[in-house]
Design a protein around this nucleic acid. Sequence first.
DNA 1: ATCGCAAATGAGAATCATTCTCAATTGAGA
DNA 2: TCTCAATTGAGAATGATTCTCATTTGCGAT
Lengths: 151, 151
Amino acid sequence: MMGPHWWYNRFRGWGYRLTIPRQAILEILSKSDKHLSAEEIYLEVHKEYPSIGLATIYRTLELLVQMGIVNKFDFGDGRARYELAEDSKGPKHHHHLICNVCGRVIDYRDFSEEEKNFFESLERNLSQRYNFEIKNHQVMFYGICDKCKGK
Amino acid sequence: MMGPHWWYNRFRGWGYRLTIPRQAILEILSKSDKHLSAEEIYLEVHKEYPSIGLATIYRTLELLVQMGIVNKFDFGDGRARYELAEDSKGPKHHHHLICNVCGRVIDYRDFSEEEKNFFESLERNLSQRYNFEIKNHQVMFYGICDKCKGK
DNA sequence: ATCGCAAATGAGAATCATTCTCAATTGAGA
DNA sequence: TCTCAATTGAGAATGATTCTCATTTGCGAT
Ligand SMILES: [Mn+2]
Ligand SMILES: [Mn+2]
Ligand SMILES: [Zn+2]
Ligand SMILES: [Zn+2]
């Protein structure tokens, strides 16, 4: 239900092993509230486990994305960024505002009830209309952030 | 208002030149209804203008994205994909359904009035809430397409 | 607790989309 | 037509991600 247990069962359910490197990576991801790149994760993991290689970071992230534990994003800075999709308290779903000028990424999760309901019903509608099973979605708004507006 | 005229004025407005390579690229983009990669555009352009190089394709696409004439997407296949943002008839805005299994990308632009209104009011709301000037947005739904559902 | 083996890993090489460099070309105002 | 900054082509350089393969490890079965 929480922490390691939860991960452990999830891995077993998929027939995967819960190894040290995988735990270390999940540990880092769950401690951070940022959008980490593979290399940033590698550097963090490396502090505790210097023997874990970058290739394992990439392989593990790919796995976690497949399992739906982690979300992968492209914010346009030339590298993929990763975020835990949920924590012990439940999903951390949110949308993004991305500044075209400075590249800043703002998370917003203060959804209105209306917004929440809208996306739910939209997903149901699309699933039917296109016979497409929707697992998740990403919403990004592009523009100019407050800091960059002042010229 | 349409075709070359429109592009020409747009370029002049930004202080850019409307050159042969730029026209050739816009020509290809406006003829296609697909999500083209830089290389695919290069190959098409190359048929008509063999002397135009790949670097110019990248440079031009970057410019067109800046100008808001072209939208850039990452559908997860390791290369950026480009689409004309608008044509002579107006904006071609739409959202995407992306299959996690086969990678297929489905455009949908048959928005309901409700959906259209929702995004408009959401953008106004977010602009105010975050003092963020929104220029455009991208919405992607991930899941399993009809073809891949039948196992 | 030990064994056997497929799954997972580390290190480094290989890929490959994208960006950079720089000399040559070109568009548009004067 | 003349001038010069903007643009381009070719190829090298970059850098994130993937691949290879020998070695290690988790875990079910003994
Ligand atoms: Mn986020
Ligand atoms: Mn599209
Ligand atoms: Zn900004
Ligand atoms: Zn599919």
